[in-house]
Write a protein that binds this DNA or RNA. Sequence first.
DNA 1: GACAAGTGATTACAGATGTAATCTAATATC
DNA 2: GATATTAGATTACATCTGTAATCACTTGTC
Lengths: 123, 123
Amino acid sequence: MKDLPKISESEQLVMKNVWTSNPATANHIVEALSETTTWKPKTIKTLLNRLVNKGALGYKKSGREYHYYPLIEEDVFVRAESRSFLRRVFGGSMKPMLATMVENEDLSSEDIQELKRILEKKK
Amino acid sequence: MKDLPKISESEQLVMKNVWTSNPATANHIVEALSETTTWKPKTIKTLLNRLVNKGALGYKKSGREYHYYPLIEEDVFVRAESRSFLRRVFGGSMKPMLATMVENEDLSSEDIQELKRILEKKK
DNA sequence: GACAAGTGATTACAGATGTAATCTAATATC
DNA sequence: GATATTAGATTACATCTGTAATCACTTGTC
């Protein structure tokens, strides 16, 4: 898997919106992000422009609206980010990572069963 | 849990060394990091100074050597980082996170069994 | 006491990031 | 065709981060 561009936390929020619903206009993304952030539209448009420059987003012009779409698959990004996190914080080891997550989160018996099923699915 | 200072990836490498063996002198940390990085001693000392200013490290002077020690417990940092990762990448959901990790990593049957035991330990 | 050596503090610089305004150009409306 | 409006590009600024040199001060040695 070739190198992904480095995407900051703020840029990730933008990407998440585009992954969820694309193609999307800037205004659409601005509206969506205004529900969860206090960013000004100009800020969001800066992040969009940076993501385009980084090769994470593409766009197609329609009239005077740009329709943005992802150039990185969400799955690819998520897997890369997960690998990076596991290596950086746990030295690549799954066991302490899972132990820490399990301690952090309030999990029900159903949750635990579901997680075990996920483990069992592993071939 | 009060706010932890934001620690960069490079600073995390320094912290890991101090967590592993402390108190530690700058030279000791420089030696240890020289095994895995190509940083100059001045670089490492900058990172040490920044960590002190951030409140992540403290020091005690002995002769002309500073003995650095952590002001943040590794466990606390690891838990906070894990929470942040889970929320940021998976919206707080354990199941897709575990599924992604399991797909990413080459796990043996023993590994899987051990991970299930970790889940079962959850009260 | 003087000088050398060693230690960290401060400074330096470039790029990244967070945040947002200003400018330019294109489209929509009249 | 002219003007208003809108959309993104560019610029702005402060802080963070990566990387490392220079400076200042303290300690060690003679």
